[in-house]
């Protein structure tokens, strides 16, 4: 289903897409967001705007999307199921579309236990699968989640979802990805890839089921700043795998930050050249947005295609 999304046009044209991520701040100034957006503008096709990531209160994803868009980048609004019931979700989505947002990424959201409001109540009125399904139905069948007709101006989003090849049960991860595609997901961004071997096995299963022909998969990569950061993720973040070799390589590096960038560029080149079925990369430079242009350029992904 065609939408006005620029990201969709690039992906549907068969061009290798590049998306990045901008994390809104824990305050009410958009200065930093705009700075990052202007910096990345010519280097990425769209940027995700995270939605209170790790359950920490931040400037809203949709509002940040408006700032990013005014700086000339297409935003991908992230929407978690943690903070809104189906009424608030639809209302926010209608509002987002009215403000010019054309891409939505649907996800469950991190549990609030790790955020700055651990005593809050989570919502989970619907889950990410259901959000994908009803968002597609909103667009294609002009129906609210309840089944009531949307008389006019239905939001027509390019619908994204996430997949985590590093979570368990591994055998079911590809099946669940397929379930999301069946529900209506048109593009997929994966969790940060550090264990390339496991990602290759995942993609092999994806190809066996022919899923890569029905959805655009963008491989998630993250440059690491230090071996301690890598070790922290290895030990403390559920659903991520960081091989020991990577930690060691950062540990032995003279300039770990440089090494982190080098590793990330190597990963992107490897994925682009060797892993069939991947249609783009999603660069998640967490709290390190400045490094995105260099990574894109040195990975041979610059300049970005122009779309009318």
């Amino acid at each position: 289903m065609k939408t006005e999304s620029k990201l969709q046009k690039i992906l549907d044209n068969g061009q290798f897409a590049v998306t990045a991520e901008i994390g809104p701040p824990k305050h009410s100034s958009a200065e930093g967001i705009r700075h990052h957006a202007e910096m990345m503008r010519d280097y990425v096709d769209a940027t995700n705007i995270t939605d209170n990531q790790t359950a920490i209160v931040r400037l809203s994803s949709i509002a940040a999307g408006v700032h990013v868009q005014s700086c000339g980048i297409e935003p991908i609004v992230q929407m978690t199921c943690r903070d809104r019931n189906r009424i608030a979700m639809q209302s926010d989505l209608l509002g987002a579309y009215s403000l010019g947002m054309r891409n939505v990424l649907c996800l469950s959201g991190d549990h609030q236990k790790f955020g700055n409001h651990p005593t809050s109540k989570n919502v989970y009125d619907i889950d990410s699968m259901q959000l994908i399904y009803y968002l597609r139905r909103m667009r294609d069948e002009k129906l609210f989640f309840s089944g009531e007709e949307i008389k006019e101006h239905e939001p027509r989003f390019f619908i994204g979802a996430v997949a985590n090849p590093f979570a368990d049960p591994f055998e079911f991860r590809v099946a669940r990805l397929e379930k999301k595609v069946e529900a209506g997901a048109q593009f997929i961004q994966t969790q940060c890839i550090f264990d390339m071997e496991r990602f290759e096995r995942f993609m092999e299963m994806v190809r066996e089921r022919g899923i890569h022909e029905r959805v655009h998969i963008l491989a998630g990569v993250t440059p690491m700043k230090s071996w301690r950061a890598a070790k922290y993720i290895q030990n403390n973040v559920s659903g991520m795998i960081v091989p020991d070799e990577l930690v060691e390589r950062l540990k032995n590096a003279e300039d770990p930050k440089r090494e982190g960038v080098e590793i990330c560029i190597e990963q992107i080149k490897y994925i682009k050249e060797n892993i069939k079925g991947v249609h783009g990369v999603h660069v998640m430079a967490i709290a390190w947005e400045e490094v995105v242009p260099e990574i894109v350029e040195r990975s041979g992904l610059y300049p970005r295609p122009k779309v009318d």
Binding site: H111, K113, D127, S128, Q130, A167, D168, K179, G239
Partner: peptide
């Protein structure tokens, strides 16, 4: 911990929930 009906979410690892290694997924 998220009352998901089409699970498991991406936080499930080694049979445990993302909220704690003491909680089964």
């Amino acid at each position: 911990s998220k009352s998901i009906l089409n699970g498991p979410c991406g936080g499930s690892q080694y049979g445990k929930c993302e909220i704690s290694k003491d909680v089964d997924c």
